[in-house]
């Protein structure tokens, strides 16, 4: 899948739009960052992580970043702060802590 460069777009006039709000390319949700209304932020501890990938498989927003089969961090541009990853993380690891989001 091609990576789409995100740019801040000018709002288009009605004449420029595809009929019926048709979206003509795939994976456009990448353009639309939805992680900015989180109140709790998951913080991942790479040292404590045992790489069980439970968090990755249960995150409802595919926001656990994985490279070469290993967790490498959290995608805060999409993470909603639901806390499922922290909840599912095995107690002996407890590698994800939820902290209050401060802006």
């Amino acid at each position: 899948m091609k990576d789409v460069k995100v740019e801040c777009q000018r709002l288009m006039d009605w004449q420029e739009l595809a009929k019926g709000c048709l979206i003509q390319e795939a994976a456009t949700s990448r353009h639309f960052k939805t992680g900015d209304w989180r109140s709790l932020r998951p913080v991942w501890d790479s040292e404590a992580c045992i790489q069980c990938l439970f968090c990755w498989i249960t995150c409802p927003d595919t926001s656990i970043k994985v490279e070469d089969g290993k967790v490498v961090g959290i995608d805060y541009e999409f993470c909603k702060g639901c806390g499922i990853c922290a909840e599912i993380c095995p107690p002996k690891a407890s590698a994800i802590k939820m902290v209050r989001e401060e802006k």
């Binding site: 288009m12 006039d13 009605w14 709000c21």
Partner: peptide, 8 residues
């Protein structure tokens, strides 16, 4: 965008 789509 809703209004623009209705206009079209």
């Amino acid at each position: 965008y809703f209004f623009e789509h209705k206009r079209s």
